[in-house]
Write a protein that binds this DNA or RNA. Sequence first.
DNA 1: CTTTTAACACCTAGGTGTAAAATT
DNA 2: AATTTTACACCTAGGTGTTAAAAG
Lengths: 215, 215
Amino acid sequence: SARRRMFPSVRVKVKGLEPLKQYYIAIDVVPVDSKRYRYVYHSSQWMVAGNTDHSCITPRLYIHPDSPCSGETWMRQIISFDRVKLTNNEMDDKGHIILQSMHKYKPRVHVIAQDSRFDLAQIQSLPAEGVQTFSFQETEFTTVTAYQNQQITKLKIDRNPFAKGFRDPGRNRGVLDGLLETYPWRPPLALDFKAFGADSQGGSSSSSPVTSSGG
Amino acid sequence: SARRRMFPSVRVKVKGLEPLKQYYIAIDVVPVDSKRYRYVYHSSQWMVAGNTDHSCITPRLYIHPDSPCSGETWMRQIISFDRVKLTNNEMDDKGHIILQSMHKYKPRVHVIAQDSRFDLAQIQSLPAEGVQTFSFQETEFTTVTAYQNQQITKLKIDRNPFAKGFRDPGRNRGVLDGLLETYPWRPPLALDFKAFGADSQGGSSSSSPVTSSGG
DNA sequence: CTTTTAACACCTAGGTGTAAAATT
DNA sequence: AATTTTACACCTAGGTGTTAAAAG
């Protein structure tokens, strides 16, 4: 019933767009599998705890607030989805992205070419053509309502400006290089990348978002 | 060089739109005349203090953030422009509405029908057709950088939630019925209506925004 | 002299993890 | 026992009039 922002947020750079053409850029989050997971503390890893039907619901689309915008402008900036909100409330009517807790998900980024034949101003689902979809292995995450892993809590407190009040002033801001496991994520509450790419252009699955990397 | 919100904000209701058609709704602010004013304290009124050329600059357009939206949705709600920001900085590059201090202005509301032939997504100027423009006599105001009239200060403090810290707890919230003069307005800073219509449908110049009332 | 700017305390509005309580 | 919800103190972010200083 609660909703919180996705953190860390997905940030991407795009190349290869037509500079004068108009594009919408959007994000959604799709299940990685149909398994339910539980976190095993003593081995510090997520284990399969059963099956779930994701009930074939179409994932909600979050349109980047700068949309629509020219290819030139999109390519000049880092595109940040830091206002995306996640919820576990299936009845949500605020347009937030709906996820089930204790499941694995993967964000997808969609680049949608402006088509004068359709009104894309308030798209609720992806059009049939003119869409390129990208996803990045390192952004896979697991949903939770309470953090299972203390490293995640530490990461959040150190990196999220809104959690500044919980920082230990004596400790240095934890380097993220060592955090290459799958991190739990809190789904009224936030997103934990396997790797914390500042922008996804350095990702392993695609060094250039111009090339589709899945979806 | 500063910028502040317009307050009180312009709020309107619309009727007579086609329910399924898409519309943009926008606001701009145009000069009432080419005079410069000064406030005469002992007579509590604004007097002409000279001429100014408004240098024929096209006024900036503020698109309502809900745009575009169906006629049905626009008509169901009160349309509030409470995030409009005003500035006296002619070099402003943030898209805010630029005004000169110590001048008289009047807001205009534009209802713009969606036209698939043009991309209205980020309109910077009004299209040649498909626009209806409304303005209301009672929203005329005078720009200032510092309040000239203590009644205005009182009105702002009593009605603007962000000025709560200056409220006198013993005093009752000033009724606005008595404030029918022209109120100065603070143009990094805010807008003072002659009459404070909660929504403009009760205005004297037009009881229905469907009928043009000027501009 | 008049008008504008800038720093400030005081608000609204909303994003954090925490800890206790409630739910399943 | 595991998971979710709620109230909360503590933040970020930004909108007020005030006041003193600056600018014209």
